[in-house]
Amino acid sequence: MPRVGRAVFSGLPLMTALASASSISRRGRFLDLPALAALERMRFVTRNQIECAFSGRHRSRRQGGSTEFVDYRQYTPGEDLRRLDWKVLGRTGKPFVRLYQDETNLLCTLAIDASGSMQFGGHRGPSKLEYAQWLATGMSHVIARQQDQVGLAVLSGRLRDLIQPGGTSSHVAGIQDRIERLTTEPATDLAVAMRELFARLSQRGVLMVLSDFLVDDLDRTFASLRLFRHRRWEVILLHLIHPDEEQLPEGLAYRFEGLENEGGTDCSPAQIRDAYRKRFEDHATAVRSLALAGGCDYRRVSTSIPYLQTLGTFLVERSG
C-alpha cells in the first residue's frame, strides 16, 4: 500500500539541509558539497507518474490517500466509506467517492557506461568517465537529499555491477563509493548490458543513462532501451561528448588508437576533417533521433561545460 508523503527537506533551512546531506553522503573525491549547495533547493522531478512503495513527493501512478484532489467516482459497494463525499451525497442523493492523487517516492537508477571509449579525455578537461562520475555523484546526492531512492548500474560489455535503488545514507554512500572506484573496460555492448539490467530491475522508476553511445549497433542498444519504455520506465539519456571528439586535432599526421581494442589508423587530419565532423554529427543526430523516437529524454552533454552547470540546467528544465 503506497503511502502519501511529503518531502523531508522541503521546509528545512539551507544549513540544516547541508548538515543532513553531509550525514547522508560520505565525502568522496567526486562529491563537492560546497558546490552542490547551490542546488539545495532544486528537485529532480519526473515527468511521468511513477510507481513506488513509499510515500514521497512524486506523483504516483496510483490514486490513494493523498491530499491532492483529482476527481469524483460513483461509489461502489464495499469501498471504504471514509472516501465517500457526504456533501455531494446530501446535495445530489447519489454516493460519490473522492479520488486523490497518490504521491510516492522516486526510484532512480543511474546507469553509467564504463566502456573503454569513456576513458577518452583529449587534451583538455576531464575524461568522459570522470565527468560521468562527477555528474552521477551529484545526481545521487540530489536524489538522496529529496528522500528518493537511487541505484547504480555499471555497464560495459555486460552488466558489471548493479546496486538496487535505496534511500539510506549508507546506501547512497555505497553508491558514491562505487562511482568513485569506477574503471573502464575495453569491451562495449550496451545492448546486452541493458537487457541484463532490465532483467534485474523489478520495479519501475527512472533510468538515467550516462554514456557516449559509441557502440557498434545503435539500433540494438535502443531496442534494449525500449524495453524499459515499454514497462513505463522514464528513461533519461545523457549523451556525453568530449569537445576533442567533435573535431580532429590540428597537425600533419596522427596515429589514432582506439580505446576498445580497435587498433590504430594513420592519417592526416586535414584530409578527413570535414568527413569526420560530418560522421560524428550524423552519429549524434542518430542517437538523438532514436532516443526521441523511443520516448526517451535526450540531453547532449558536453564535457567542456562544468558538471554543476549541466546538472543545474538539467534540474531546472525537469522542474519546469
Partner: peptide
C-alpha cells in the same frame, strides 16, 4: 612523410570511415 603522433581516440571508427571514404580520392 610526417612522423605520426600517437593519439588515443574514442571515435576511431569515424576516422576509419572517413579515411575509407577519402581513400579512393587520395
Amino acid at each position: 612523410r610526417p612522423r605520426p603522433r600517437r593519439l588515443p581516440l574514442s571515435t576511431i571508427r569515424f576516422v576509419r570511415e572517413a579515411v575509407q571514404q577519402k581513400r579512393a580520392r587520395h
